[in-house]
Design a protein around this nucleic acid. Structure first.
Lengths: 234, 234
DNA sequence: CTCTTGATTATGCCATGTCTAAATTAGTTC
DNA sequence: GAACTAATTTAGACATGGCATAATCAAGAG
């Protein structure tokens, strides 16, 4: 006959005072803010696959909880607390990706979605253990930095392949939102995050790119090129 | 403007058609059934820390979903499907415990609660990888069997220390419900799951037991003795 | 100054799971 | 076999968390 109103939800969330959805929103705001500022409600809604109304409502909650700031009809930003949450989730995500791939040998096109689940559930203790096992890495195999436990850090800017011109060189960093199908397609062709490339040629009128990875030249176009992101050497 | 009614809940549960709570109930029914049959609603409620009314309602749902059977006012049992779920969760749990302890060096008094969380989230793929990494173990370090991916298996009966008499010998298997505080207490005294023991003497009137682990004799009584479970050599 | 686009409310729905209080049933005792 | 007790089940609600649609409302573009 327990008197405490301990719903299974509260039991589940007792471990952390943010829900999975809250973490996803905060993460979305953070990553969107990396590229485009200000972050719009619509962008968040699109990223998360919800209606604008829902995003608006949720962002208000984040504001009330002190995780985000959004002046009416203005851009959405994160408070320090919100950024802290975002970085923690991001850290979890990248450590997990790295661990799953390196230590467990999980194929690269799978680690993302697996990490997407586990990132919300990873305890601080386990996070620490994993980080230690990996030798406290500061960048993941994509070349993306892993946030320190509490520190901020500089997330290097990336560009979509669709925006690159001939002659651009750099490192293929990731597929935006890590579409597994695209990752798989690419890996079947020997292209993996972390690979260096050079854009050999670009067809006009939004046409495909000819990109050299190592000695092979591949043709990339359409949604694929748009989704692929590069850290460009400038 | 997505039209599909894809709530974050459904998104979360799309990965598995059972919720965390359902899995907990099924697991509780299974483990309770190991020891005492029939399994009563009250026992489930107590195990899960909810009211009997809640347990009753939930068990009805399990019945409707074809995971459990419970004749009105009768004992609760699992269907094949329910047992399948229970064994899967149990398998997850034990593999995780083993992995966390063996591969990641997490202290024993912590692995249980960590596994309690992760067991609900472990994908089949990751489960398989972990199992392989561990060499497809069939028993966990407690001495408890790890269910095969689909097979049933015999879970050896365990007895509470509180029920043992002088002269009883066996292996200390686990602390019931894995109370971390008790596990910690025991491990500080050099007693771990898997250790062999012999009951040297037992004080009458529900008094403490004197139990030899290796060469040391320890005194165990009260809730501790009641919570400790042994696989007794008969 | 209108028009379009993005943002915000106003409502409502649904799913999960829980609780308390009041029946009801089953089992035990006299 | 009536009465009592313990276990179980209903009845009735509530809280949380999140989403959607429809209809306003703000603001910058022309």
């Amino acid at each position: 006959m327990p008197t405490a109103n301990t719903s299974s939800h509260s039991a589940r969330w007792a471990r952390r005072e943010t829900t999975e959805a809250v973490e996803d929103y905060v993460k979305a705001i953070y990553t969107l803010g990396q590229r485009d500022s200000p972050v719009t409600i619509n962008a968040i809604a699109a990223r998360l696959g919800v209606s604008a109304a829902s995003a608006s409502a949720m962002v208000r909650k984040l504001d009330q909880r002190g995780l985000a700031v959004h002046p009416a009809y203005g851009g959405v930003g994160l408070t320090d607390a919100g950024e802290h949450v975002a970085l923690e989730v991001l850290r979890h995500h990248r450590l997990l990706e790295l661990y799953l791939a390196e230590a467990l040998g999980m194929p690269w096109d799978r680690v993302h979605e697996e990490a997407e689940i586990l990132e919300h559930v990873l305890s601080d203790e386990l996070e620490e253990i994993i980080s230690a096992k990996l030798g406290h890495p500061t960048i993941d195999p994509h070349g993306d930095p892993i946030p320190a436990r509490d520190g901020k850090f500089h997330e290097p800017a990336t560009d979509s392949f669709a925006d690159l011109g001939a002659g651009a060189q750099g490192v293929f960093v990731r597929v935006s939102d890590s579409e597994p199908a695209m990752l798989r397609y690419l890996s079947e062709r020997g292209i993996s995050p972390g690979d260096s490339f050079e854009v050999v040629e670009r067809q006009p009128f939004g046409g495909p790119l000819f990109v050299r990875f190592g000695s092979e030249v591949h043709v990339l176009g359409g949604d694929l090129a748009a989704a692929m992101r590069a850290e460009v050497r400038r």
